[in-house]
Write a protein that binds this DNA or RNA. Sequence first.
DNA 1: ATTAGGG
DNA 2: CCCTAAT
Length: 603
Amino acid sequence: MVLQKRLNYGFNGYQVPVIPRASRSARGRGTIRKKPDSSQIQAFEILASVAGNFLQENESSNPENVVLAKDPRTLSGTNIKDKHGDERSFKGALFEHGACSEIASVFVPSMQGKHDNHRVMGDSSFLDNHLEGQGQNVPEREDERIKGRSVNGKTIHIKGCSNGLIEPGHGVSKHCSSANNVEKPSLEGRKPLDSFPKCFTSRKLVNRDDDETLDRCTQLNSKNNTSGAPPDTPKLKDASPFISDENNSRDISELESLQRMYPFKKRKFFNQTSSSASDRGSQCQGMFDSSDTIRVNGTNHAIEESSSIVGQQAHFGSRGCNVKLSIKSFKVPELFIDIPETATIGSLKRTVMEAVTAILGDELHVGILLQGKKVRDDSKTLIQTGISQDDKRHRLGFMLEPRHTQSPSSYNDDPCYPTTSSRQKLSRQSTSVTLQQGTYNVSKERSMIKIESYAEGDLNMVTSLADTSANNNMSKCRALVAVPAINMETLAVVPFRRKSENPDFAQRRIRRPFSVLEVEALVQAVEKLGTGRWRDVKQRAFDHAKHRTYVDLKDKWKTLVHTARISPQQRRGEPVPQELLDRVLAAHAYWSQQQCKHQLKPL
DNA sequence: ATTAGGG
DNA sequence: CCCTAAT
């Protein structure tokens, strides 16, 4: 008998590489959406055309245009090809269990050939309506519509979180909740090695890797620190001598400086197929929890709260003064797919396609954000708007938005706990469709599509606004499709594996060496909590590092102790400051001793 | 689900 | 990092 276990795929949005399954925590925890900007967005006809054309070419409702790929960055090779699609069951394709998280969905224009099927085209070219005039003559209607929609303003913007939701309080609330998890009293005053940079007294790391953000929110536990022993721990006469309150209170600022001390490695979002082990630590992940700094095109750009990740290049050529934009990916709202294990690949594709169609089908608009503000006036030129200015181009954001905009109030409603009124809105704006074999739910609550564009540098798609508007040249735009997403979460959730790896087995987790920052956080936590409370250590210092489990932390501590004991010459990998290693030994010795004590005379 | 250790 | 036995 076949288990009807259902596989849930939470699509984090079609990034055009799409991210599968948002981590539960990311979804479930009080995610916060940014309030819509008071100012409104304006249509950017050209981009709308781009998007529209892309989607049309995609035969929106054609499931064959959805490709399941093991590695979203590669649209070929690891794809689960169509021809097998309808025959292969999920099981056959090893889509079950852990593998689910590694499935990425990618939009593939049928133009690419290999995926086209004998399918009637455009059984639902949902964009036909609103994009008819795309290109040259942007229909005024479009403007009207957009304006109308803008009034309702429902564009949400995101900072960091892949799913388009911000989780600001993240660290804070989380840690607050764990307040009862009070650390053992510290031996007052004793500070970590003096020689060690002060900043290292901070406990939490700032994620240098999107998801690895060991939030900077600190635990806010300074008040608790000396108050007592953890509920689950016998009160100790003596306590961890390693941490002091003082240190805690400085977490934030120190973290900041810590961050400065250990600058992020530049991260390459693209072409990272083969990354060295040492580089991996900073290459993936994000769920989120993205750090406040987001790298764009390998450089760091502080992203404004409401801005989408955008990079734009202004080229002031001797002749044109055209503004060249490179849109790396479109982000489509998060989708949740619920489909039986026995469903076929083909049906999965269909389901996904339907979901996508449903969410985009109504209409699509492009909104533009400049420095967090929506640009309303369609008649303004890029220059007038300032978009072409060098200093502002980083702040340019594009959004694809579904037609039906929700009222701003909806933003304030937690989708998880909709109020009566908001629930109505939700019901109106949500789409739930049941297919033969699967269902998906689309909540337009999150239906903001973000277009991420980045400054130059990337193959394909450099779209000249001027050109595009003039001749509706879409061919380039389709290249969008193949560009890997930058979404933090995407990076976080989708393991990048080599095609050559045998997909028949549960893949070993990607190796992600601990960074110095992480080591610091670990040491700090262990100093305080001891070596037998990995769960707490995890919660305390790595709560947001989804890829670090308490077992990982325990293992890391083990290796740290080992590392600290061997000669520096024998050590490998990114060197850990000797100060840290000293602390490791000290903490290890201290807690080992404590353990012995308690074993001998357990109060 | 966690902890503790060996592999 | 993985795998597991023991909690």
